[in-house]
């Protein structure tokens, strides 16, 4: 069996298909570009809600390219895509709830000492 495989390897060495890496390097370019844009905003724009919104949107774009292309999720079955994405809606709920909770805590502490 082992002998068969080594022989097979020699045969296969000749007909290994050429790498198809165009899409990979394109995705890499997009990720580097988006990160560069984030830095551009970090140094040219004043901190605030607008800048934070830009950061979050760019981050979601980056996340999309990593998950869809690098992790190949875009090319999986529809049911797999949705069973990964839908549960993440719970994270959004947790985020809304806890940020509101934090602001409320801050308000009550400040008002208490005033």
């Amino acid at each position: 069996m082992a002998h068969h495989h080594t022989e097979n390897d020699f045969h296969k060495a000749g007909d290994i298909p050429k790498p198809q890496t165009k899409a990979i390097w394109k995705t890499f370019g997009i990720l580097v570009g988006l990160t560069a844009v984030e830095f551009l905003f970090a140094f040219t724009m004043d901190a605030g809600t607008a800048r934070n919104a830009i950061f979050i949107i760019l981050t979601l774009f980056k996340a999309f390219y990593i998950v869809a292309e690098f992790m190949h999720l875009k090319h999986e079955a529809k049911s797999l895509i949705w069973s990964i994405i839908i549960p993440l809606a719970l994270v959004i709920w947790l985020m809304v709830a806890l940020l509101a909770e934090g602001s409320y805590y801050y308000e009550s502490i400040t008002n208490y000492f005033n």
């Binding site: 994270v91 985020m95 940020l99 909770e101 934090g102 602001s103 801050y106 502490i109 400040t110």
Partner: peptide, 12 residues
């Protein structure tokens, strides 16, 4: 990360 947001929102 959400706890980070919580802590940040509850500080000045």
């Amino acid at each position: 990360l959400i706890v980070y947001g919580l802590a940040r929102h509850s500080h000045l």
